[in-house]
């Protein structure tokens, strides 16, 4: 995995509904490498010719969008009210830094100082509706010089390498998936393969529905970052999956029961190639596979994920070791799925 490309991808703006910046970068990366088109919703669909034709239409997919905020109102005093795009835990928003609008205006999510809280206020989590973004504007007119109601705000969070090969950044979900797909697309592939970089996964898997209709694949491999809860005081199955334990191949999540044959194929392939893998010990989360599987007259789906802590916060954390194993597995799969009769 090329860390600098991941860094670049994560730093781009791509909150659901506004994925253009990410899309443009991906298109530029795929120039000369694959046939690329952009559909009505902004999904990027790429076709990479392989050495041979494929026995079946195979699609590898990742989503470009990230969770974020949208400005709902500018108060008379210049503070911004907002709502969340995608599922964000309100608690991580307190004191978070954001960038607002096309001009990426600095802002912070403020809350009354702790010293001024009443006893009851101290014991409860503030409601989303009581938080606001402060960009330092004097009043509404001042604020309107820089931003508008309806502008998007994204997390302002640095890409940091720390600990033993850990990486922290916003939007690793699912820029890692995008990176993995770009790297696959640049390789020499045995079989013709389709790649989809979808929009609006975080707000209901929306781009994927359209992609399924357009491409009509027979098999889809969804590449994602999936929630790892291997944290302090979490035991046993509640960890769901762990960092430093390899690629995650889930058999089921809240949206999908993965195709059993594909699951078996992927796990056996991983074992054969000595790729470290794990499965999820709790049924949690969901991704574009849920959309693909239930589209048209049904599509067979598989998911291969990198385990990621603190999803949907400004501080997603992954480990380089897991990235390597995930990418290795994806490469082995892409070289087989087009031609294997046993799939």
């Amino acid at each position: 995995m090329i860390k600098s490309v991941l860094h670049r991808l994560c730093s781009l703006s791509g909150v659901s509904g506004c994925e253009d910046e990410v899309g443009e970068y991906i298109v530029s990366e795929l120039k000369g490498v694959a046939e690329v088109k952009i559909d009505n919703l902004g999904n990027i669909i790429a076709f990479k010719k392989g050495k041979q034709r494929s026995l079946r239409k195979v699609l590898f997919s990742a989503h470009m969008d990230e969770v974020g905020l949208i400005i709902t109102k500018i108060n008379d005093d210049g503070y911004l009210r907002f709502s969340t795009i995608g599922g964000i835990d309100t608690r991580v928003l307190i004191s978070a830094r954001v960038k607002v609008g096309k001009n990426k205006v600095n802002g912070i999510i403020g809350i009354k100082a702790v010293h001024l809280l009443s006893k009851e206020e101290k014991t409860t989590v503030p409601k989303l509706s009581s938080l606001y973004i402060d960009i330092g504007a004097k009043n509404k007119d001042d604020a309107l010089k820089y931003i508008n109601e309806g502008d998007i705000a994204e997390f302002d969070s640095d890409f940091v390498e720390f600990g033993d090969n850990y990486i922290k950044s916003k939007a690793i979900d699912d820029r890692f998936g995008c990176l993995a797909l770009i790297e696959l697309c640049k390789k020499e592939l045995l079989y013709d393969t389709y790649f989809a970089f979808t929009v609006s996964e975080e707000i209901g898997l929306r781009g994927a529905f359209a992609c399924a209709y357009e491409i009509k694949p027979e098999i889809v491999v969804v590449v994602e970052a999936t929630t790892a809860v291997d944290l302090a005081d979490i035991k046993g199955e509640n960890k769901v999956c762990s960092l430093n334990c390899g690629a995650v191949i889930p058999f089921m999540d809240k949206q999908t029961i993965y195709d059993k044959k594909l699951f078996k194929f992927a796990t056996e392939l991983a074992n054969e190639k000595q790729i470290k893998w794990q499965t999820k010990t709790k049924i949690a989360g969901g991704n574009d596979a849920g959309a693909f599987q239930r589209s048209l007259a049904g599509i067979r789906v598989l998911s291969v994920c990198v385990p990621c802590r603190y999803l949907h916060t400004p501080s997603c954390v992954i480990n380089f070791y897991d990235c390597e194993h995930t990418e290795k597995l994806l490469f082995e799969l892409i070289q087989k799925l087009g031609g294997e009769s046993n799939v």
Binding site: Q293, R294, S295, L296, A297, G298
Partner: peptide
């Protein structure tokens, strides 16, 4: 889930 795809077909 099954009903969705069957009805499409």
């Amino acid at each position: 889930r099954g009903a969705k795809t069957a009805s499409f077909e």
